[in-house]
Each structure stands twice: as C-alpha cells, then as structure tokens.
C-alpha cells in the first residue's frame, strides 16, 4: 500500500511546501509532518502530504544496517563452519565414547 515518495524541500510557506522530487516540483502539505522542516530537508510524501522528515544521517544508518545484516549472516556461517570442524575433529579424535 501507500506509494511514498521522498523529495527535497525547496521552500516553505506556512503549511505548504514546494518539494522537488528528482526534477518534478509539487506542492506538498505540511499539516501532519512530525517536526518542522526547512529548505534542503528531505521529506517522505504520500497523497500530497509530507508524513516524515528524513534526517540525512539516518540514510547512512540504513546503509550501515545492510552491512550489519551481511556481517551477521557471514558471521554465523563461519561460526557454523567452525562448529562443524570442531565436531569433525572430535569425531575423528576419539569416537562417541571418548
């Protein structure tokens, strides 16, 4: 649901902002945004209303999250491999009763 489009605020006039969506300028209402915006801010828009100011550092945070997820997956595979190796070593060293 909900087509949300990020855009950059060009100017603010009370409850109405001019927002640039990668080359398309459109009026966007600010009635329900969670914090004040000013020109240069990025906002998420839905049906003509800005619903969120997107702080630039959180774009970086998203990217960092991807790295973390990749790292987690890798990490656990390595852990599994290591465990597998340990198990194998045990098995070859002494058998079940050792």
């Amino acid at each position: 649901m909900c087509l949300g489009v990020p855009g950059r605020v060009l100017e603010v006039n009370g409850q109405i902002a001019q927002v640039d969506f990668f080359g398309v300028r459109r009026e966007t209402r600010l009635d329900i945004i969670d914090e004040p915006v000013q020109p240069g801010d990025y906002v998420l828009n839905h049906v003509g209303f800005a619903i969120r100011r997107i702080p630039p550092h959180e774009i970086e945070e998203t990217l960092a999250l991807y790295e973390l997820l990749l790292h987690e997956a890798e990490h656990d595979i390595m852990a599994a491999d290591v465990r597998g190796e340990i198990d194998a070593t045990r098995a070859s060293a002494g058998g079940p009763d050792a």
Binding site: L3, V5, F21, F22, G23, V24, R26
Partner: peptide, 12 residues
C-alpha cells in the same frame, strides 16, 4: 528523460 521517470514514479 529523468523528469519523466520521476513523474512516473510519483504517479505509480
């Protein structure tokens, strides 16, 4: 055209 792409994306 980048602007056409942006407008299209906006309108779904």
């Amino acid at each position: 055209n980048p602007v056409v792409r942006a407008a299209a994306e906006m309108l779904g």
